[in-house]
Amino acid sequence: MNTIQLISDSFIENKCNFKQLIERLKEGFASTTIQVPMRHHHDYPNPPEDKDSTLLLMPAFNPGVDAGVKIVTVSPNNGKYNLPAIQGTYIYLDAHKGNIKAILDAKSLTTKRTASTSALASSFLSREDSSSLLMIGTGALAKNLIQAHASVRPITKVYVWGRTLEKAQAICDALSNATYSCTAITNIEDKISEVDIISCATLSPTPLVFGKWLKEGQHLDLVGAYKKDTREADDEAVLRSSVFLDTYQGGLKESGDILIPLNTGIITKEDIKADLFELCNGSKKGRTSETEITYFKSVGHALEDLVAASYFYNEFISNK
């Protein structure tokens, strides 16, 4: 019987090569074989808390090759137990024989694949000479987004904004050995009109990025605001930009950054230029001019999890 490999967050953190993972994701989005059904969302009672919890199941299949499912629970009151509200595991399978090949901790898997997906989009949408980045947000994704973007563009200057200067400085301290400078800032408006790329990964319910601040040629990468009634960028930012999604399947249904302007008539579905499937298979183009402002909305997709699980599994086996 085949041994089930246990792949930890620490292995994923230490063995991630963003350039390689981004290339694998590009191949995955260009593929016509990977199948991804809609994710399962189940709310269930949690009597001890008198509040529902949620179970999310996110499957993907590459027939005859591999398959996987991410299992995530959301328990909103977990803070009082000193536990994260969101916890998860990824089960990676042999799609031919059905056996489990590996179990991966989902936290680092998700942050690495999410950051790499944003950088993949940037490779189509940001200017090739983009050298400066503003990171809005200081959560688990912030450091990864900076590193991933810097792997596809010649970044020399990074600015970080968070709810506290201390948290922003902590991100910069964690990147003190990077090839680019990293500076914590207290005001988004001070730098947002200067940088080439703006990456935003927050839980803010209301916009932090305003279109009046944007300049020609910028690329806007929106990763937070995963609920239908929350958003990170305002209507003017949408109107001034060419809009792209990771997938139509999720992007048109899950995030207020797209849903709110769609529902209010600010934009129509026809205004959305392309998703990553179309960019990666070459059927549609990304940036078309040096002055264009590009706007990418990521909500996540199970294809990304499967590709990342395959990448880290192969790294794990080769390092044994």
Rank of each mutant, 00 (worst) to 15 (best):
N177C: 02
S131V: 09
V74L: 14
K143F: 06
L259R: 08
S318N: 15
A85I: 13
Y159V: 05
T264M: 02
I22S: 04
E216H: 02
A106M: 10
N78Q: 08
F18H: 14
P205V: 10
Q169T: 11
T117H: 00
L252N: 05
P63C: 02
K253W: 02
Y248V: 01
E189F: 01
A274G: 05
F124G: 01
V243H: 05
K112H: 11
I12H: 01
N14D: 14
N281T: 09
S199M: 00
I7W: 04
L141M: 15
C200G: 01
H301I: 05
S53D: 07
D173G: 01
N17W: 03
K26W: 03
K70I: 05
F29H: 08
I266W: 02
N144S: 13
K70L: 09
S289Y: 14
I185D: 04
T32I: 00
N78G: 05
E189W: 02
I146Y: 07
L109Q: 08
V74C: 01
I91V: 15
E128T: 05
H301D: 14
S283W: 02
S126T: 13
K273A: 13
N77M: 11
S31Q: 07
G139H: 08
I258V: 15
I272L: 11
L141E: 14
L175G: 06
I91C: 13
N62P: 06
S108K: 09
L203R: 07
V158K: 03
G98Q: 11
Y180F: 15
V65G: 00
T110E: 11
A302I: 08
L245V: 10
K212D: 11
K227H: 12
A142K: 07
C182P: 03
M38E: 13
L57I: 15
L25G: 09
E254H: 04
N99V: 06
P47A: 09
E236V: 11
K51T: 11
A85Q: 14
E278C: 00
T164I: 05
G98M: 11
R163I: 14
T3Q: 15
T268C: 03
V72K: 06
S151I: 15
L214V: 12
L220K: 07
S131A: 12
K101Q: 09
G250Y: 04
A302W: 13
K167P: 02
M38L: 08
D43S: 13
A142H: 10
A233E: 11
K157S: 12
Y248H: 15
N78I: 08
G251Q: 13
N46M: 13
A119M: 01
L252F: 13
Y295K: 06
S193G: 10
L83I: 06
K70M: 09
F244D: 01
T73K: 05
K297H: 11
I155Y: 07
P63A: 00
I272N: 02
Y92A: 05
L259C: 03
V69T: 14
T202F: 10
D9N: 15
G256M: 06
G211F: 06
Q20C: 10
K112F: 08
L93R: 09
Q20W: 02
E292S: 07
Y248W: 14
M135F: 03
K320V: 12
K297N: 14
S242M: 12
N144D: 15
L104S: 03
E270L: 00
K19I: 07
T3I: 13
K26C: 10
T114C: 09
L245Q: 01
G139A: 06
H41E: 08
S130M: 04
L83E: 02
